[in-house]
C-alpha cells in the first residue's frame, strides 16, 4: 500500500506493513475518545455523562471506564427521562449503573409536566421538552463539563460542532462563534454560569460504533436486535403502541419483525423492519443500509431541515 512516490531509504520503525496499520481505525478512535475524556475530566470541577441507555452513550461510558482504569468512573450519570421511554431501556440503564457502581441522576420531563413548568405539545412528542430539565439539572447540580454521545455523522448541524463545545448561561450553542479546535488540544475553559458539552465519539460513524460494540462485547438494550413487535405505520415510520402514541383510525396494528436503530422517546422513535438478530447481522445491515440513522427513525428531525440546529441552539444535547 506504500505510495511508490515515497522514497524507501528512510528508516521508519514499525511502519505499516501491507494492509495492517499499527493502529487501525477503531484503535485510533478509541484512543482519541479516551484522550478527550481524560482532558475534560482533568480540567473539570464537576463532570457528568448524559446516559440514555442508547448505544452511543453506552460506548462513551465504556470509554470512560477505560480512561480511569483501574479506578471507577469518577462522575455521575444524568438521564433526562421523557417519561416515554421503553421499559427495556430503563431496565438496562439501571442494570448498568448497578454494575459500574456509579451514581445516576434522573431529570424527569414528567415532573415538569405534572407541576405545570412544561406543557405537553399538541403532537405528543417530548424530545424538544428535554432541554428545560437538562439545563435546570446542569444549573442546580453545577455541572461544568457535560459528556454526550453525539456524533458528527448523525446530522448536518452536528457535523459543524466542536468536540468541546461552549454553552452560554442559557445553554445556547452559537454555531457561528465556535472556538477553533487545534491539533489534539481541547479548550474547556468557561466563565461562571457557562458550561461545555464534550463529545468523545464525535468522529465515529454508526458502523464504527457497532464494530466497537462487537469488539468490546458490550451489552445493549434488547430492542436494538430483531424481535417481534406490534407496530403501526405513521408518516412512513413504524411506531410501537405506547400510552404516548396510540394508533389512530386507519392505522392498523400489525406484528412485524423489527429492531430499533436509535432508542429515544417512544412517541417519535420508529422501528425498522429487520431480521438482524445478532451483532454480525446488525453490522452487515448497517454497512449496507442506504438510509441515514436519523432519517429512518426520528420524527423530530423531520420537522424541518434545521430541526436539530434549532434544538441545539436552545441547549439540546
Amino acid at each position: 500500500m506504500r505510495d511508490p512516490r515515497v522514497s524507501t531509504n528512510t528508516q521508519i520503525s514499525h511502519a505499516g506493513v501491507e494492509g495492517s496499520p499499527r493502529l487501525n481505525t477503531l484503535d485510533a478512535l478509541e484512543a482519541e475518545g479516551i484522550h478527550i475524556i481524560r482532558e475534560a475530566v482533568g480540567t473539570a470541577r464537576k463532570p457528568v455523562l448524559l446516559f440514555s441507555g442508547g448505544k452511543d452513550s453506552v460506548v462513551v461510558l465504556h470509554l470512560a471506564t477505560k480512561a480511569f482504569w483501574p479506578g471507577r468512573v469518577p462522575f455521575e450519570l444524568l438521564h433526562v427521562d421523557t417519561g416515554h421511554n421503553f421499559d427495556e431501556v430503563i431496565e438496562f440503564r439501571d442494570r448498568t449503573v448497578e454494575r459500574l457502581g456509579v451514581r445516576l441522576q434522573v431529570a424527569s420531563v414528567q415532573d415538569y409536566i405534572d407541576d405545570g413548568r412544561l406543557r405537553e405539545r399538541p403532537d405528543g412528542t417530548r424530545n424538544p421538552l428535554q432541554t428545560v430539565p437538562l439545563l435546570d439539572a446542569i444549573e442546580t447540580q453545577k455541572y461544568d463539563v457535560v459528556f454526550g454521545g453525539a456524533r458528527r455523522d448523525e446530522e448536518k448541524a452536528r457535523a459543524k460542532e466542536r468536540v468541546v463545545s461552549l454553552r452560554d448561561e442559557f445553554g445556547q450553542w452559537d454555531p457561528r462563534n465556535q472556538r477553533p479546535e487545534l491539533w489534539n488540544l481541547y479548550n474547556p475553559r468557561h466563565l461562571p454560569g457557562q458550561h461545555v458539552r464534550v463529545f468523545p465519539i464525535s468522529n465515529w460513524t454508526e458502523l464504527d460504533v457497532w464494530r466497537y460494540i462487537q469488539k468490546e462485547n458490550l451489552d445493549l438494550p434488547s430492542l436494538y436486535y430483531a424481535h417481534e413487535r406490534e407496530v403501526f405505520e405513521r408518516d412512513g415510520m413504524l411506531l410501537s403502541p405506547h400510552p404516548a402514541v396510540m394508533p389512530r383510525a386507519g392505522e392498523p396494528l400489525v406484528t412485524k419483525t423489527v429492531r430499533y436503530r436509535t432508542v429515544g422517546d417512544a412517541s417519535c422513535t420508529g422501528a425498522v423492519e429487520s431480521p438482524a438478530l445478532t451483532l454480525d447481522d446488525v453490522i452487515a445491515e448497517v454497512a449496507s443500509t442506504r438510509i441515514t440513522e436519523r432519517g429512518a427513525t426520528r420524527a423530530d428531525d423531520r420537522m424541518s431541515e434545521a430541526a436539530m440546529e434549532d434544538r441545539k441552539k436552545e441547549g439540546y444535547f
Partner: peptide, 18 residues
C-alpha cells in the same frame, strides 16, 4: 473479507484512518 461482505465499506478493524 469481512462479515459484512459489503465491498464498498472499509472494515474499521483492519484499515487505517486518514
Amino acid at each position: 473479507m469481512t462479515a459484512t461482505q459489503t465491498p464498498d465499506v472499509a472494515d474499521s478493524r483492519v484499515t487505517s484512518l486518514l
